[in-house]
């Protein structure tokens, strides 16, 4: 715990948060928050959690990137993670399916449970874990293979299909659910990389849902897409929510407001506030949340 205190103090000190007009106010707020570490404003728990994160701390070497964060992800909910660049949204998201394991010098502490089981336990195999908790990145990253193979890969390695008919069925239904099927059904053997950005993103979503995940993590999935492609993906997210839990990182306040039921605001590695999206965007409780979402600081 000593490390935490020291490093968080240095974060406070180095924070370029001060605006010339109201230096004390903002910093004061921050200080209050740090004195009540773990006291995120709003209820971090939910009645029907799919995932629960408790006392999560993440370091990249000396850099304390996530500080004692507690947060539940509910069943059939879209949770949005928002906050200024570098506040730790991606870091936290990647903790939820142990993607950070692959980063040298990255240390994750605390407990993150999926359906009550800590995913950081020694006996947890990350390969099936990442099928249960899928991830879609900001930049669509289809494999340099055919559209069909992009989707078929996961079910195949996880042994979800007994034969070719099964696999075809999974590929087709995944492409249908991601809203891509009609556009690609005549060229399933063509490379996935030959699709447009929005199509590639929907291909990646099809790939993620092909392995029947329970949770889908999305890191700025629409940042490179036009409004129509964005709307298609948002519609899809709403559809996917019926079966899955979704955690989405977005820089678009409007997108968070449109797609999510709960919103979590991160600031310098702290989870500052969490609440129903409608409340966060009409009447946030914490000054930092308000200043961020109204565009009053960067």
């Amino acid at each position: 715990m000593e490390t935490i205190t020291t490093s968080s103090t240095s974060v406070t000190k180095d924070t370029p948060l001060m605006t010339p007009e109201k230096p004390n106010e903002v910093v004061e707020n921050k200080v209050i928050d740090r004195d009540h570490r773990g006291q995120t404003v709003g209820d971090v728990t939910v009645e029907n959690p799919r995932m629960t994160a408790r006392n999560v701390n993440v370091w990249y070497g000396d850099k304390h990137a996530i500080q004692n964060v507690n947060l539940d992800i509910a069943n059939n909910e879209v949770a949005a993670l928002i906050g200024p660049s570098g506040c730790g949204k991606t870091t936290f998201l990647r903790c939820l399916n142990r993607m950070n394991d692959t980063i040298d010098g990255c240390l994750v502490e605390g407990e993150i449970a999926l359906d009550g089981k800590n995913i950081y336990d020694k006996d947890v195999d990350v390969v099936p874990l990442r099928a249960r908790v899928g991830i879609v990145f900001q930049k669509p990253n289809p494999f340099p293979k055919s559209i069909y193979e992009n989707v078929a890969y996961g079910p195949r390695i996880h042994g979800l299909a007994r034969n070719k008919t099964d696999l075809d069925e999974i590929v087709h239904s995944s492409l249908k659910r991601s809203g891509l099927f009609d556009e690609v059904k005549d060229r399933l053997d063509q490379p996935g990389t030959g699709l447009s950005g929005g199509q590639q993103q929907r291909l990646c979503i099809a790939r993620a849902i092909a392995v029947s995940p329970e949770v889908i993590l999305m890191d700025e999935p629409c940042s490179a897409l036009d409004p129509i492609a964005t709307a298609t993906i948002e519609e899809l997210i709403d559809e996917l929510r019926k079966k899955y839990s979704i955690v989405i990182v977005t820089h678009s306040m409007q997108q968070a407001a449109r797609v999510s039921q709960r919103t979590a605001y991160f600031h310098l590695g702290d989870l500052i506030e969490v609440g129903p999206t409608s409340e966060i965007f009409t009447n946030p409780k914490h000054k930092l949340t308000e200043e961020y979402i109204t565009g009053r600081f960067g």
Binding site: F281, T282, T294
Partner: peptide, 9 residues
């Protein structure tokens, strides 16, 4: 401006 929070109110 797609206002939110205090601006929206």
């Amino acid at each position: 401006r797609a206002p939110v929070a205090t601006d929206l109110r």
